[in-house]
């Protein structure tokens, strides 16, 4: 019976022999196992399918390429960046942007209700500290729930920090611009146009945020928040009770204004902070080889 199995597996056995083998296989597990081996050999030895005709293949491909639309996908780098922004946006807790919007709405509301004078002064007081407080929390620390995961990702720490700064600072920038536009449109800003209103807060916002970021990279978020509040308090007190209206007060006010040197200094500080952030491990994080 074993001699008939190769022919049975190849399908070349005649009718009576084929029926006899089939009946035997039903009762013999050993021959069934042999048959499985022969069938595997038969499949492997079977001739390959005939190659397609080259002429018709080229014709088919060319005609299909003219009929079907070309799907243009964005370059890989852009897609990667969009994915990074989306991922970072998910890591920002909603409470912080909600609080920023509430504080900005409080300032704009007080101006709109005519309870205070000076839309430019109000926005120049609120916008910088809101942005700086947000930026203070952007740099990774071990308190960040995603810190270990982010430390293990192959994406550069500098790029992640840049993306997060762009999200946080960009959001606060849009908030301040929106508040300025509303106050200008409603006439609450008085004679000031949108440019004057933006000029009141843009420079201080950029400078305080960049200082906050630099301190966050060196000393962590608590120190950054404390330093930002301290610096801003000195600015607020300039010309008031603690710092009388003299050359010192005017020097402080001059530093916290919108002009080219202030904006350039802000950019330099932010660049230094981002460059430093890529060196070594995040502040406060235990090193990977920390002894137990």
């Amino acid at each position: 019976m074993k001699d008939l199995l190769p022919a049975y597996a190849a399908g070349s056995l005649s009718g009576p022999d084929r029926d006899r083998v089939r009946a035997h296989l039903a009762d013999c597990p050993r021959c069934r196992a042999d048959l499985a081996s022969w069938q595997a050999i038969a499949v492997a030895a079977a001739p390959a399918a005939a190659p397609p005709d080259p002429a018709s293949l080229v014709r088919t491909v060319l005609s299909r390429s003219t009929i079907e639309p070309i799907v243009r996908r964005p370059p890989r780098r852009v897609r990667h960046l969009v994915a990074l922004v989306a991922a970072e946006a998910r890591l920002i807790r909603p409470a912080a942007p909600i609080a920023s919007a509430l504080v900005m709405a409080l300032g704009a509301g007080l101006v709109l209700l005519r309870t205070t004078a000076g839309a430019d002064l109000m926005l120049s007081l609120i916008a910088p500290i809101v942005a700086a407080a947000g930026v203070a929390g952007t740099y990774r620390s071990r308190r960040d729930p995603a810190a270990e995961l982010l430390a293990a990702t192959p994406t550069s720490g500098r790029l992640l920090l840049l993306v997060r700064i762009a999200l946080v600072f960009g959001y606060d920038l849009v908030l301040a611009l929106g508040a300025s536009a509303v106050l200008t449109a409603t006439g609450a800003a008085g004679a000031d146009g949108l440019n004057e209103l933006v000029g009141a807060w843009l420079g201080p916002m950029a400078l305080l945020s960049s200082i906050s970021l630099l301190i966050a990279v060196f000393l962590g978020p608590d120190a950054a928040l404390g330093a930002a509040v301290g610096l801003w308090a000195v600015r607020v007190l300039a010309g008031g009770v603690l710092i009388p209206d003299d050359w010192l007060a005017w020097s402080i006010i001059g530093v916290w204004s919108t002009n080219a040197p202030v904006l350039v200094a802000s950019a330099v500080l932010a660049t230094v902070a981002v460059a430093i952030s890529g060196r070594g491990e995040p502040h406060g994080g235990g090193r990977a080889t920390h002894p137990m």
Binding site: A96, L125, D222, L225
Partner: peptide, 15 residues
């Protein structure tokens, strides 16, 4: 959020 709370308190103080 310490940042949000700090910003609120500083804004009230400054206002």
């Amino acid at each position: 959020s310490p940042g949000a709370a700090g910003a609120l308190v500083t804004s009230v103080w400054a206002i």
